[in-house]
Deep mutational scan, measured.
Amino acid sequence: SAVVMEEGSPGEVPVLVEPPGLEDVEAALGMDRRTDAYSRSSSVSSQEEKSLHAEELVGRGIPIERVVSSEGGRPSVDLSFQPSQPLSKSSSSPELQTLQDILGDPGDKADVGRLSPEVKARSQSGTLDGESAAWSASGEDSRGQPEGPLPSSSPRSPSGLRPRGYTISDSAPSRRGKRVERDALKSRATASNAEKVPGINPSFVFLQLYHSPFFGDESNKPILLPNESQSFERSVQLLDQIPSYDTHKIAVLYVGEGQSNSELAILSNEHGSYRYTEFLTGLGRLIELKDCQPDKVYLGGLDVCGEDGQFTYCWHDDIMQAVFHIATLMPTKDVDKHRCDKKRHLGNDFVSIVYNDSGEDFKLGTIKGQFNFVHVIVTPLDYECNLVSLQCRKDMEGLVDTSVAKIVSDRNLPFVARQMALHANMASQVHHSRSNPTDIYPSKWIARLRHIKRLRQRICEEAAYSNPSLPLVHPPSHSKAPAQTPAEPTPGYEVGQRKRLISSVEDFTEFV
């Protein structure tokens, strides 16, 4: 048969007729292969192709491409040299491709048809291009793949890379869960390890502090508590009631339409708007009261037996805890006409967050109470924005700035309102402590230090009264110190430094 060459192609190359033996071998191979691939376009007849790359030819070592076609129900084999250009295909004639002069020997084609199974398996396991790669995943090629499931790999992101949580363990979102698992493993320790309690022994800490320079003076030496005195035992138990972190309780009120001037209507609300609910979820963490331990979680007086509701929101960081007394989460009882059960919590909070959804101005004093010092007013606006402002009593104007209003988005509203309420509550605590000038409020841990110092002074006084020969370590507060001759004046800087060093040991009130 003659071949018409394309323009620009090399000279004529004689194409030899395939021997009958080659056709029989390739026909047997075509019957084993699956003929249901995917359909081509209507211009080209339905056909199945599979590209198999052999590394070497037997005796020649030339890479070839073998295409199996099922045109007219008769499979045909096409061998081509890759750099050459194939002729145009037609549905009426068999596929013809040019070969190099080196394939002119018909014996070479017979060798190609009689490829060993080793070469076929190696060509099938190679990388296939384009559409033949999808075909190689079918059941027909499963014989050339190794048996057994593939090893499982770690989760992959859409980009093909490992997620960040699997790369950096410290930033993994499941870090707290692993800590819980470690605690569970520790709890399952053997009885021999049960006595080993991690941490620092208080006796060891005391020993280090006792021999430090801070205890060089007799006034700073630790003293032993009497065991037989019940009054001192009660004082030590009272110390446990003062937490070592700051605590805040903040009221949250929802004002519906037409309720801006009605205290009873505001306290009777059992739910609010959708934006109000989203605002609550951002204030803190939802907790169930019956599962809380009052000595570990500050509840601000809420009952854990269901008297004040089942849930509330709280927030904490390293040095403070805040609980929100939310009116809509507290039960509304029919027998309580004046809502006294709610007001006994909300009316005693220094700061209230008022979500004013009424469309009218909310005035300070609508919720009557002796300790309502500051109101954080949240007014929802259009386009997911809110107006946040402050209202306070006249005696609080020096501590709280009420002249600045803020426009905040719904997303950042819980954070801004919480921070403003916490700052206002700190100012309210300082303002409330002014009624007792001898006990200015600095912080909870300073209050613990003052309680310890008062307890020490009482013990020293009782020891001096029981044994008059012992001198008083600290003179009583009601006694007057003996007159001392004025010492020589020293520079102001040295006096300030000495006073600062003494105050650092005794108390921190002056620095606050």
Rank of each mutant, 00 (worst) to 15 (best):
S479V: 09
D382W: 01
Y465R: 12
C314L: 13
S352H: 07
N227W: 06
N348S: 15
G365E: 15
I326S: 04
K221W: 14
C314E: 15
Q391C: 07
S504W: 06
V374N: 01
Q484K: 10
F415H: 03
R458C: 15
G300M: 07
R448Q: 14
L387K: 05
M320E: 15
F415D: 03
P489E: 14
G282E: 04
S358W: 00
D357P: 00
G282M: 03
S469H: 14
P475I: 13
L413R: 00
V400P: 03
A483C: 13
S260G: 09
Y493I: 11
K444V: 08
L399Q: 05
S235L: 13
N467D: 14
K343S: 13
Y245W: 11
D336W: 10
F311V: 06
E218N: 08
Y465E: 08
P243Y: 06
V255C: 05
F415E: 04
H478V: 15
T379A: 05
N386S: 13
L381R: 03
D334A: 15
A464K: 10
L286F: 06
Q370V: 14
E270I: 05
M396V: 15
C385D: 14
A487M: 14
S268R: 10
S231M: 10
L472R: 13
F279D: 00
M420Q: 04
G282L: 02
A424Y: 04
K368T: 13
D217N: 13
T366Q: 04
S428H: 02
E257L: 09
H316I: 15
H432T: 07
G492N: 11
P471S: 11
Q293E: 07
G256I: 00
F324G: 02
D308H: 08
I242R: 07
M420S: 05
V404K: 07
A427Y: 10
T366H: 04
R456W: 08
F373P: 03
P482N: 14
N436I: 07
R450A: 12
P468R: 10
D357T: 01
Y276A: 01
R411C: 12
P331C: 06
N269K: 02
P380C: 01
V335G: 14
I326N: 03
N261I: 03
L253I: 10
I353L: 04
R339W: 13
P442I: 06
A322E: 05
P471N: 11
E263N: 03
P476M: 11
K221M: 15
S466T: 11
N372M: 14
S244Y: 15
S235Q: 15
E384R: 06
C292E: 08
E263T: 03
K296M: 05
I326M: 03
K296G: 10
L387A: 06
E218C: 10
P437V: 06
I502E: 15
S443K: 08
Q429K: 12
F415P: 01
L225N: 10
H478G: 15
V304Y: 06
Q321N: 07
H338K: 11
A487W: 09
Y313I: 15
L470A: 13
S433R: 06
G301C: 06
E461T: 12
D240V: 02
S260E: 08
C385H: 05
R434V: 09
R448D: 13
A481M: 09
W315A: 05
Y313L: 11
V297K: 14
Y493Q: 15
S443P: 08
S469V: 11
L346Q: 05
P294D: 13
V495E: 15
D317T: 03
K221A: 15
S231A: 13
I440W: 07
T485E: 12
K444S: 07
E278M: 09
T379Y: 04
N386Q: 00
E307N: 13
I446A: 14
G284E: 04
D361M: 05
Q497H: 10
H423Q: 05
C314M: 10
N467M: 14
T402F: 05
S469F: 08
S469M: 15
S477A: 12
L302A: 15
Q484L: 11
G306D: 10
P489G: 11
I326K: 03
G258M: 04
E233G: 07
V297D: 15
K444P: 06
